Amino acid sequence: MKILVVDDSALMRYTICNILSSIPNVQLQTSRDGLDALEKLHSWQPDVITLDMNMPKMDGMTCLSHIMSDRPTPVVLLSSLTEEGALVTLEGLYLGAVDFICKPGGTVSNGLHSLEEELRSKVIQAAGKQRAAVHATNSPHSEPLPAKEPEPIKVSYDKAQGVTIIGVSTGGPGCVERLVRQLPKDYPQPVIICQHMPETFTAAFAKRLDKVLDLPVLEITGATELKESHIYVCKGDRDCIISERGGKLVAMPTPLDGRFVWHPSVSKLVESGQRTLGGKNLNCVMMTGLGNDGAQEMAKVASQHGLVLAQSPDSCVVDSMPKSLLTLCPDITQAPPEELGRLLYHRTHRFPKEVTNGVN
């Protein structure tokens, strides 16, 4: 595996290379700025790149745009946890980066050693992504699909009492946007997006979606009444649950639950939805991501005749999450993001009561 480490700090280049040197059969080269990185992109042709977003001569965003247009290559971004860093990193993910690492102590940080395992894991995972598919998979820009008759799916729910839950992790922002762009202004359910991200990043993600979508988008920062035709993003560095207060359906952030590895936890969110509404009143979508967060719980929703869909693995940036669900429920419908959005639209508008002329 050939890894190009791009950072203007000699200390960071040394630290990152030292962490990644333990990967079997690894070859490492470094670049101190974006211009040098682009030269090595063509002359050395790395399999994966770690890219600092704050550099002189050519910043990380400009460098990334050239990488994706000249020779699309899996990129893991290194970013700060500031609001500005979150906005820049989010744009980088939309532009085609596979994943990101937050520098715990700022631009130059010895604290990166605390993230050794995460950095190695994300670089290895990114390297497994085919170069030709990197940019196309992450791109959020798509036109709404033309309406057509859906294939029958066995599903039972009351759309007026239902909630749509989207579970997603690595590679999520672009894929999620491609899905929700297909939902109309009158989508008859609240939609909750559970995306594995730090707090500053989920706030930036919600703001971005709110600007580009017809449906209003809010981050769940406190007990929030769930309204149809609204989209909600779970707050990062917390978990989120669905509950009932005063006869109203609400979602609220909760402290991290140690039972779960990933946060915000898709498993905990779906579990709370089952407890509050019953599985048959949930629409669940499992999208791109690393791990198996939410697979068991969504499989239970499917067994209770709720609607469960999975992003097709070949359209994912990382396919572990949908594959984990498909292992448990091999017969559920799988599709690329745009098609998932269209399926959700037809299921909520065309089949508000039980349908049995098909298999799920």
Rank of each mutant, 00 (worst) to 15 (best):
G306H: 01
M286T: 00
E116D: 13
H135M: 14
L38Q: 07
D186I: 00
G60M: 08
H349G: 03
L78A: 15
Y187P: 02
D293Y: 00
D210T: 11
S31V: 06
S22A: 11
L20D: 11
T333I: 12
K323W: 01
D319C: 05
L4Q: 07
A204K: 02
R275A: 14
P104M: 06
Q182D: 11
G291T: 01
L90S: 05
D314E: 13
Y94S: 06
S303T: 09
Q182F: 12
V301H: 02
T224I: 03
I332F: 00
I23A: 12
H141L: 13
G289D: 07
G291L: 01
C284I: 08
I67N: 03
S65C: 03
M61K: 05
L28S: 07
V355W: 10
G162W: 00
S320M: 13
D8E: 10
N360W: 08
E177F: 14
M1Q: 11
S139H: 08
Q29S: 15
V134T: 04
L38V: 06
V317T: 15
P188L: 02
Y232D: 10
I23F: 11
I242F: 08
A132V: 12
S315L: 06
N18F: 11
A97Y: 02
Q130R: 13
T62Q: 11
T170K: 03
C194H: 09
V250G: 09
N283G: 10
A133W: 08
Q45A: 14
H113K: 14
I192R: 01
T356R: 15
D293S: 01
G60W: 06
R71P: 00
I332G: 00
H66N: 09
P140W: 07
P352N: 14
S303K: 13
V76D: 09
L309D: 01
T82W: 05
I67V: 13
L215Q: 09
R178G: 15
V5W: 04
S303Q: 15
Q29C: 13
A127V: 11
L326V: 00
G92N: 09
L213Q: 12
T224N: 08
M286Q: 01
V76S: 07
S139L: 09
T89V: 05
T348I: 02
I3K: 04
L28C: 10
E151M: 15
S142E: 14
